[in-house]
Structure formats: C-alpha cells, structure tokens
Design a protein around this nucleic acid. Structure first.
Lengths: 234, 234
DNA sequence: ACCTGAACACCGTTCAAGT
DNA sequence: ACCTGAACACCGTTCAAGT
C-alpha cells in the first residue's frame, strides 16, 4: 500500500491556515497567485482556502481591486532599493530601481494591469516613491518636475509590463498581438508610407530593452520640460 | 388611454436589428457601451440584444478581448488627424492629435484599460500610427527612435486614460485613490522626507495637464536618447 | 457553413440573521 | 463586533446537435 495515509485533511496544505485577519488574507492571496495565477485569486476561491464564505472577507477588504493592490504592495517588498544610496551615476541607479520594480511586474503581468487602476498605497510603495524621488533630487531635477516625473516613470514601467501580459501567454492572446504584426506586414506603401517603411521595427526588440529606452527618454526629457503654467489646478 | 400602443416589440429599439455580421455585432456593441458602459458589453448581453445565443457570436469574434479591440478601433474613427497636414509647429500638432486620441479614451476609460492589453489593429488605428509617424519624421526624429517612440507616446496616453478611469467614477473606486491621498498626507518627514516635502503636489493637477506634460517630456527626450546597441533582438 | 440550446464552471457583492 | 448562509444577478466559453 502507499505509505501516504489517506487521513482526511482539514483543507489544503497552505503555510498553515492563517487567522482571519487582513494580513492572513493577503498572504493567502499571494500564495494562490503564485500557484494558480491572479485570475484565480477571487473572493470565492480565497474564502474557500480560508474555510469560510466569501462574505466574511468583506470585513477586511473593501473589494477585489483593493485586494489586488494589497497583493502588489506585498510583492513590492522584493524591489531592490539599494541603488538609492549607492555611489555612481544617478540615472543608472534610477533605471536599476525601476528595472527591479518592473521585474516584479513582469513576473505577474496581470497584476500590473490591476496596478494601473488601483495603485497600492502600502509601506513598500511609499518606500519606492521615496527612493525614486531621492534620486531625481540628486540628479538636480526641480521639485515640480520630479513630483510629476516619478508618476510618469512608474506609470510607464507599469503599463509596459501590463502590455506585455498579452504577448507572453502561450497561444491564446498571442493571436491579438499577431494580428497587428500581420496587418503591419501587409500594409500598403501608398496609403501608409511611414508604416511600410518602418515595418517590423515598430514591434522589434525585447520588452526590457524598450522599457529601458522609454525610461531614459523620460529622464532625459524631464529637465527640459517645464510644467504648464498653473491656469487652473482642480 | 396612453397614445403609445402596447403592441409587442421584437426586442429593443436599436438602430434596427443588424444582420449577424462582424460589423453588425461591433455596431451593436458600441451602442450598448454608449448606453450602459463597457461593463455591460458582454457576450451574453450582446447576444440578447441580437436575439440569439452567446455561442453564435463566436463565429465572428474570437473572444471578449478581440471584441473590445474592435470597439476601440471603431471609436478611433473620431480622432482628428488633420493636424498631420496642417502648417505649424510639429510638436504642437503631434500633441494635438494625441490629445484627440486621448479625448476618446477619457470618455471611455474602461476601454483604455482593455486597449493596453489588446491593441486594436484596424483601419483607424493604422491611420493614427501613420499620422504620428509622419509628424515625428517631419520633426527630424530618426527612424529608430520614431519606431519605438510612437509606441511610447500611445502607451503613455493610453495608460493615463486607463489610470483616470478609477478617479472619475463616483464614490466607489474613489476610495482607492483617496487611500493614497490620505497616506501621503500622513507620511512621516523622518522616514520619507521627499514625500513629505512634495506632499499634495505628487497628485496635483488635472489629468489632461499631466498627460500633456508627459507627452512633451517624451517628445523632448526622444532625440537625445539613442536606442540601445542591438546585442540581441528577440 | 452557419447557427444554437444547453451545459460547465465559475464570478462579485449584499443582506438578514446569527454568535 | 464579527462572521456567515443563502441568495441575487450575473459571467466566458465549449460542444454536440441541428439546419
């Protein structure tokens, strides 16, 4: 017979069923995401894992969007902020931090999609913002530009990761991306001369390279671009 | 009695029930979105409107993502591309076209979210790309930068609209945005000095102003930022 | 070929009622 | 206060069967 006794288990074998607290809920959500993807991190699935009903979760989490934001903040603990206090070119160090941020998102691109809509506001996100602002300040970027610039950098990084989420997955959504590839290959040089001329180059390059380039474009452009005169500030 | 006879209607009063073709399906989808929002544009709802079952739609549309992309391309017909062939500063004209693009997305921010994941590949999108590339070329941006730059510009515009989708809606997701506002107000000047110093300015300004600024940052940075040496080009 | 009824396998969120 | 059973109002997608 199998050495594995068929004794009934209380449920699954998560890191021991956490108490029903916000932290326990988020930790379980992260575990499910690692095992089964963000798509499976639903209120119902989560409740099942915690041996309760979905309604119980609403005591600790306002809605699914807030849950996803909490998951992201948790993962953001893995971002390497050390370049903020290291010697060297400030632009390189800025890009290094942002690359570390993006690495997290590239591993969970569907989370990047959520992040665009519900930004996290947890500890780790604040630390990230602070580190980026310190480097912009060190680089002599005026406060006005830095305040908007840090948002632009993160938004660009996040949306690049979100966009990649489609391309990555096997087969399925691949089709949508191939659609543009195909159309671009067959475009008429008469009606769309620039598109025909550039061709494949429009879609060339690995995501990471395009991301790095885009971030440097933003960094290079920032000091040369004053903020608009404050006609209104709603 | 009411002058309105209570005679039974075949269904609703859409622009006359279109034939079951791809174009008819997309047209109906656009109508539902205008009336009830993108959230309601589901395969089932759409099928109901067309007096059929959801399975029938899969003959014409691969999946929901492709449907959303088709809707966006339809709306992109409203983008004003005329600045591409008008005299004046090329940067201003570039921003004008992108503002027109974003205006469409700001009216349907949930569509912007879809667009990040499944870019449209229809007629109108191609025309938009061509117009933007023509202006970048006119501005003397080298082809290599223009090819990646047009994508960066559109991605930045799209993600800005997507991000705004949360802030706009009444009440509901407002909470998520207020979360960051609140946290930022209470941040400690000891642990996060830059955040404390910049304070509200991090979140200040209307979306349109921030968007315009970000686009100009990209445009200004582009000519100063060569593409990385092509070590590998997967 | 095109179309569809019916099913499979799920969702988020609320609310009245319990402890 | 915290927790929950049950319900409400939905989803996308597939497939075998029809025309």
């Amino acid at each position: 017979m199998s050495p594995q006794p068929a004794a009934p288990r209380s449920r699954r074998e998560r890191p021991a069923k956490p108490a029903l607290t916000r932290d326990g809920i988020v930790a379980t959500a992260v575990a499910i995401m690692r095992d089964e993807g963000l798509k499976r991190v639903t209120m119902r699935r989560l409740a099942q894992e915690l041996d309760t009903g979905p309604a119980s979760l609403y005591v600790y989490v306002r809605n699914t969007a807030e849950l996803h934001a909490a998951i992201l903040d948790e993962l953001l603990g893995a971002v390497d902020l050390s370049p903020a206090t290291t010697p060297g070119d400030w632009q390189d160090r800025l890009v290094r931090i942002l690359s570390s941020y993006t690495a997290v998102l590239f591993e969970h691109p569907s989370l990047a999609r959520s992040a665009l809509v519900a930004m996290p506001s947890g500890e780790h996100y604040l630390d990230l913002l602070e580190a980026l602002l310190a480097l912009l300040s060190e680089g002599g970027i005026p406060d006005a530009q830095a305040a908007w610039g840090v948002d632009a950098l993160l938004q660009y990084a996040t949306s690049t990761a979100a966009e990649q989420s489609t391309r990555d997955r096997d087969g399925d959504a691949q089709g949508d991306w191939d659609a543009l590839t195909t159309v671009l290959r067959d475009v008429s040089a008469t009606t769309h001369p620039r598109l025909a001329a550039l061709g494949d180059d429009l879609l060339s390059g690995p995501g990471q390279a395009r991301l790095g380039w885009g971030l440097r474009v933003l960094i290079n452009g920032m000091p040369h671009t004053p903020r608009p005169s404050t006609t209104d500030t709603p």
